[in-house]
Amino acid sequence: MNKTIEIQDLGLKDYKQTWDYQEQLFKGIVDAKIKNRKDNTQLKTNNYFLFVEHPHVYTLGKSGDLSNLLLSEQQLTDRGASFYKINRGGDITYHGPGQIVGYPILDLDNFFTDIHKYLRFLEEMIILTLSEYGLKAERSTGETGVWLDVGTPFARKICAMGVRASRWITMHGFALNVNTNLGYFDHIIPCGIRGKAVTSLNVELGVDKVDETKVKEKLLKHFKALFEADFL
C-alpha cells in the first residue's frame, strides 16, 4: 500500500481546467489498477491532494436539481460566474475567491475501502481545523458537510462536500468558506437545502481576512493524522 500523498497547490485556476486535471490524475490511477489486475503486476498507485481557488462558478452534482440555481444564463454572465453540471454527488454549490477548495484524489485501496468513513474523515479534518479557531463545528444528520449551531434556528453551513468514487478512487472533495463573498450563495439554494444559512470563517471570527495559508497548513496536519499518510 502506498500511503504517500502528493500535495499540489494550484492557486487560482479555472474550474473546467481543474476538473480536466482531476480526471487526468484519476485516469492514471485507474490505468495502473487495471494493469495490475490484468497483468498481475504490482504497480504503485499514486495519491494526490489538490488545493485550488476558483473564479466564481456554480456546480451541480449528478443528483442535483437545476431549479436550485436561481439565475438565468445572462444573469450568470452579468455576475462574472460560470456554471457546470458535473459528476460528483450532491446538489448545487458555489466556488469562488476566498474559498479553500480541496480535491483529494486517492486510491482508497491504499487506506481503507469505505466511502462513508472517507467522508466522515474529511468532515473531521474540517471540524478539527475550525476548533483551532475556537469554533464548535459539527455534522448535521443526513446533510454531508460541516455546520455551526446544528439543531438551532441559526444553523449555518461553513463547508460543503461532494465526491465521486469509482474503483475505490476518489475525486472532487470539499469547499471551506474562509474569506468568501457570501452574497454569491444568495443566487442558489445551497446543496438543495432550504431555510439554512451559509457562513465563512472570517465572518465567524469577526475579522476582515483570515490567513488562508495557515488554514491550509492546519487542514493538512489533520488530514495527515486521520489518514495516517505521508506527504510529498
Rank of each mutant, 00 (worst) to 15 (best):
L135R: 09
V150T: 15
R79Y: 01
Q8G: 00
G64K: 02
H54S: 06
G206V: 14
R164C: 06
I115S: 01
V178N: 03
K117H: 07
L201H: 06
I86C: 04
L119T: 01
A165L: 08
K35S: 13
F51C: 00
G80V: 12
D211F: 07
L69W: 05
E217R: 00
E217Q: 05
E6K: 07
G96I: 09
D9V: 02
F121V: 00
G61Y: 06
K13G: 02
W19R: 06
K85S: 15
V163A: 00
T41V: 09
C159W: 01
F83M: 08
Q8K: 13
E138L: 08
Q42I: 08
L226F: 13
T41L: 09
V163D: 00
L182D: 06
I189S: 08
G28N: 15
Y15P: 02
I7K: 02
P153D: 12
F83H: 11
P55I: 13
C159D: 06
F154Y: 06
T141C: 12
G98P: 12
K214H: 11
F26W: 15
G96L: 08
Q17D: 15
F231I: 13
N47S: 04
V30N: 01
K157T: 03
D149G: 07
E143S: 13
L176S: 02
P104C: 12
I92D: 11
A225G: 04
K44I: 15
S82C: 09
W19S: 11
H116N: 04
I169L: 03
C191N: 14
V163P: 01
E124K: 12
L148R: 00
N177S: 10
L122V: 08
T93S: 13
G206E: 15
Q42A: 12
K224W: 01
E132I: 10
G192W: 04
Q22I: 06
D78Q: 15
L122M: 11
E217W: 00
D91S: 09
H56Q: 14
A229D: 05
N87M: 15
N68G: 03
Q22M: 10
A225Y: 01
L219N: 01
F112S: 10
L50K: 07
K221I: 00
I5L: 11
K214I: 01
G134I: 11
F26A: 09
R79M: 04
G183I: 03
A32H: 05
L219M: 14
V178E: 01
L201T: 04
V101R: 08
F49W: 10
S140K: 15
L232H: 09
Y48M: 14
S72P: 09
D65V: 12
N68S: 05
G80W: 13
K196A: 09
G61L: 06
Y58D: 09
K224H: 03
D31M: 11
K196M: 11
G142P: 05
M161I: 10
Q22C: 09
G142A: 05
Q24C: 09
